[in-house]
Design a protein around this nucleic acid. Structure first.
Lengths: 140, 140
DNA sequence: GCAAAGTACTTAATTTGTTAACTAATTAAT
DNA sequence: ATTAATTAGTTAACAAATTAAGTACTTTGC
């Protein structure tokens, strides 16, 4: 059997590391960690989500999310509500303050994104995005 | 400006998470963590490397690598040597014991890999690999 | 309708990652 | 030549990830 020159998971890790370098300086400025920003980003797109969904979409395990949420709540960035239908479920949404911060940072992120696309090329970017979506769908 | 449905870095993270699910059960058996296995895997491919190169290729920061190396050395899995030309550099290589372990685990990894390729398709796999290599090369 | 199983978090303990400061060795600059 | 700057690696302090166990609520099965 032919030996692969490199493992896919390692390639995914390295390429993510490269891609992150476009955004790290911006995150550094905001003071948010990568994980914290993922939470803000995903919550901004989905207005309201329960903690489990949010954890899945952010690739953050529940215990880590609990910590981030607790901190954000105490800082007035996130609003935590119990679902009426199911008292186990925590519904989460961004506060106006957090939405405001997102609006301020977002253009810088978009700009870095544009730089990245500029370097890789629009077409390759879309190709890559499609393939990654397929890989993500491989497991339930 | 058109809003992207999802960020590349998050897609890379999620797809890696999916891909990892094929290998996690095997790693669990061995008792190695993801990072530890990356060190063993990369060192097995490159016979001898200095710590900096190894850290870069494994996407592990030096302090974390120091810890892993120290532990592996005390367990007799890794051999640490000073470079003759430059006394700052630590040259690392797998012990016979570690090579043996790699040989035992490797077939299982290959098998999981084959399953993954089977699900995604050989061609898409190669396409993806090429694109990821390009992304990795975007930053120095 | 009530015990048993399942779900959605949360808490606690351990390991790992991250940042910054530090030591030792080498290279560069005047 | 000797100080200054750079590089490789380590150490220390803190934040985050991971695993396992725990709590509260809901659904299922008899």
């Amino acid at each position: 059997m032919k030996k692969l020159e490199d493992s896919l998971t390692l390639q995914l890790l390295r390429s993510r590391e490269s891609a992150m370098q476009f955004f790290r300086p911006i995150l550094q400025e905001t003071g948010f960690t990568e994980q914290q920003w993922r939470v803000i980003r995903v919550l901004n797109d989905n207005k309201q989500m329960d903690a489990k969904q949010l954890a899945e979409r952010c690739c953050i395990l529940s215990p880590s999310l609990t910590r981030i949420i607790s901190r954000f709540e105490s800082e007035g960035l996130i609003i935590r509500n119990r679902s009426e239908h199911d008292q186990r479920i925590t519904l989460l949404s961004l506060s106006d303050k957090a939405s405001e911060i997102f609006k301020e940072v977002s253009p810088k992120i978009d700009q870095a994104y544009a730089t990245l696309i500029g370097k890789l090329g629009e077409e390759k970017m879309q190709q890559l995005s499609r393939l990654l979506t397929e890989v993500t769908k491989l497991t339930p």
